[in-house]
């Protein structure tokens, strides 16, 4: 059953590329985003890879 109340914020659990993409899109479309990351910094598994195309850092 869907409640009538709609809160304009979202929680994203996981700060890898996937979570960051979801967070950026939602923040850019007018929602307040809580990005929850288990470790000390976002970036996830992709940041561990040596060569993916251009960049390993993110622009949060």
């Amino acid at each position: 059953m869907l409640g009538t109340k709609k809160v304009g914020s979202v929680m994203i659990v996981g700060g890898g590329v996937t979570g960051m993409q979801a967070a950026l899109d939602l923040a850019d479309s007018g929602y307040y985003v809580y990005l929850v990351e288990k470790s000390g910094a976002i970036g996830g598994a992709m940041a561990q890879l040596d060569k993916t195309f251009p960049t390993n850092d993110c622009s949060m």
């Binding site: 709609k6 809160v7 304009g8 914020s9 979202v10 929680m11 994203i12 659990v13 996981g14 890898g16 996937t18 979570g19 979801a22 929602y31 809580y34 288990k38 996830g44 598994a45």
Partner: peptide
């Protein structure tokens, strides 16, 4: 924390 939705992206 009060939120409208939750996205799970915890990876592998």
């Amino acid at each position: 924390i009060n939120v409208g939705a939750i996205v799970l992206a915890p990876g592998f």
